[in-house]
Each structure stands twice: as structure tokens, then as C-alpha cells.
Amino acid sequence: MTDKIRASFEKNKNGKAFIGFITAGDPDIDSTYEFILKMAEAGCDIIEIGIPFSDPVAEGAVIQNASVRALQAGTTTDMVFDMVAKVREKSDVTLCFMTYANLVFHYGYDKFFAKCKELDVSGIIIPDMPYEEKEEMESVSLKYDVNFISMVSPTSEDRVKMICSEAKGFIYVVSSMGVTGVRSSISTDLAPIIGHIREVTDVPCAIGFGISNPEQAKAMASLSDGAIVGSAIVRIVEKYGKEAGPYIYDFVKSMKDALLEA
């Protein structure tokens, strides 16, 4: 398969990608459609679409509350697929899904990833499916050319080699212990972890969890191949609701501009 994810990094002069996250269905699915196009327009290289789950145990309050709003609005996995089909009429931006194992398992791995392939979705991020358990899902996702994105955390230590030697798409480096959410500073010394990853693989790695401003985005992208931003975008939706589009555009643009200087 052509590696659309890798191309999303390489198309920028410095080889760095800005990865933005949005919860599908918050405040409603039509708004998400509009937000995704705005993010793409603002230069978001990869967009992670969160399919809302009732019990998002890897999320901090911001994304958890967004999931609650999305589910209250009646969002379902099928509605998310329909929305992505609409996006595809307008944009070929690189897309990944982020959700929890149960939603994909329950939908049926084959049925889910066949849909992904049809909609040109390049990757799947499942925070509750570590290396030890990924095979049941990855063996199916790869049949449909969907990369199972591996995560590395500050506590991975001796596991980095094992995880990264099989990594595809990009590697999601979790900046900090705990759950997603805006942090005033990222205290983990990530350089040794990135160095360790580089020894094992040339798959691009991007840092996420806690990145909320252009300075952090630039710093994290300097250290790695990109920055992943979720809660800071979702917070804009929380604040402006359906009217969030232009604010998301401005924010993503400022983050992308900073990242290009990394």
C-alpha cells in the first residue's frame, strides 16, 4: 500500500506533521464534518477522529465530557462513517480513527476495517489495546490497509524495542503519565525515549498528551516528528459549540505555523 501517513509527514519541508484530534458528534455530527474540513484547510496533516465511547478511561475531563455530549446527541459509529463519507467528497486529508477496543470489537473487526478502507482511513488508535493484545485487531486491520498505531509511554522502558519493531503508520508517543488533557508543562524527559525509538525504526513518531500552545507544539516537534493535539481543540468546541469552526481554524493554523519552524 502507499504509505499515506508517512507522506503526511514528508510533504512538509521539515518532515514534521501536525496531528489534530476531534471528538465526532460534539456538539453534533454535522458540526464535526465542518470542523474537520476547517482543520484540513488550516494545515492539519493528519486528523484523528474520536469515535465517542461511554467510558473513555484514557481521557481526561475535556475529551470525556466531549464524549458525553456526543453520545447525548445520539452519535453512533455508523453516523461517524457517514460523516467521513461526506468529508471524502471534499477532502483527501489523512484520517485516523481513535476509539476504544469495545466499539470496534462490537462492530465486527472485518466490517469496521472494510468501512475504513472504503473511506480511505489510514490508521486506528486504540488506547486500551497494548502490544500484547493487538494481534486480534491488527491482523484484520492490515487486510484492509489500515495501520494499527502503536503507543509508547514514559513507562515503556524495555518494551520500546518490541513495540517499535512492529510499528506501522506512525508511533504515538505519550508525553506524560495519566490521561489526555492540557498540561502547563511536560516534565517527562522524552529525548531518551525518542532516541530509543529511532534506534529501532524509521517509522515517524509524534508526541501527544498535554500539548496546548504553539511553543509546546514546536518544542515537541523538534524532539520528534510531530505533535498531536486533542484536548486543546476539543476545548474550543466546548466553548463555542457549533460556532467553533473559525476558532478551530485559527488555533490549528497557529499550531501548524509553529510546528513548521521546528
Partner: peptide, 23 residues
């Protein structure tokens, strides 16, 4: 399938990478 901690098909370790080394 991860054979660790399985009772038939049930069980396993579906948890964030952050907690894996601790487990």
C-alpha cells in the same frame, strides 16, 4: 491472541501501554 491470563477466550490485558510494565 495473548495467552496470558486467559480463561478460554475471556480475560487478557486490554489496558493502556502506560500500565503494562506495572502489570
Amino acid at each position: 491472541m495473548n495467552s496470558k491470563g486467559r480463561f478460554g477466550e475471556f480475560g487478557g490485558q486490554y489496558i493502556s501501554e502506560t500500565l503494562m510494565n506495572e502489570l
